[in-house]
Simulated scan of single mutants.
Amino acid sequence: MSTWTEFLTITGVSALLLTALQAVTFAIGHRLGRYNVVDVSWGLGFVLVAAVSAALGDGDPGRRVLVLALVTVWGLRLSWHMHRKSVGRGEDPRYRELLDRAGGATLGTVARKVFVTQGAAQWFVSLPVQLSAVLGPAHGAGRIVMTMGVALWAVGAAFEAVGDRQLRAFKADPANRGRIMDSGLWAWTRHPNYFGDACVWWGLWLVCAGVWPGAVTVGSPIAMTYFLVYATGARLLEQSMSRRPGYREYQARTGYFLPRPPRG
Rank of each mutant, 00 (worst) to 15 (best):
V67E: 09
S53D: 07
L99N: 10
W80N: 12
V129T: 14
L76P: 02
P61T: 13
L70T: 01
P61K: 08
L127K: 01
V71M: 03
G62V: 10
F115Q: 06
G108H: 11
W123R: 00
V87Y: 05
V65P: 01
P61Q: 06
V129E: 12
T106Y: 02
R112F: 07
K113T: 09
V87P: 02
L78P: 02
R89Q: 14
K85H: 14
S41Q: 04
V134E: 00
T106S: 15
L56E: 09
G108C: 13
L66H: 11
S53R: 00
P61C: 12
G103F: 11
V52Q: 01
Q130G: 10
S53V: 08
Q122V: 04
G119F: 04
F46G: 12
V116N: 07
V110M: 06
L44G: 01
W123N: 04
W42A: 01
T106D: 14
L48V: 04
L68I: 03
G88M: 06
A102V: 11
A105F: 05
M82V: 09
G119W: 07
L78G: 06
G45K: 00
G62K: 08
A54M: 10
L76A: 11
L68N: 04
R101Q: 15
A121I: 12
K85A: 07
K113Y: 09
R96N: 00
W42D: 02
D58W: 04
R96L: 13
K85V: 07
L98V: 03
W123A: 08
S126A: 15
V129I: 15
T106R: 13
Y95S: 01
R101N: 13
S79C: 10
P128V: 10
R64H: 11
V73N: 04
A54F: 08
S86W: 12
F115G: 07
V116D: 11
F124N: 03
Q130A: 15
V47M: 08
T117Q: 13
F46L: 08
V114H: 09
R84S: 09
A69I: 13
P128R: 12
L98N: 01
A55V: 09
R84I: 03
E97T: 07
D58V: 13
Q122T: 09
V87E: 15
V40Q: 06
G75N: 08
G62T: 10
G103Y: 11
E91Y: 11
T72E: 02
L107C: 02
L66E: 13
S132E: 08
Q130E: 15
A102K: 13
P128F: 13
G57V: 06
L56G: 02
H83S: 12
D60K: 09
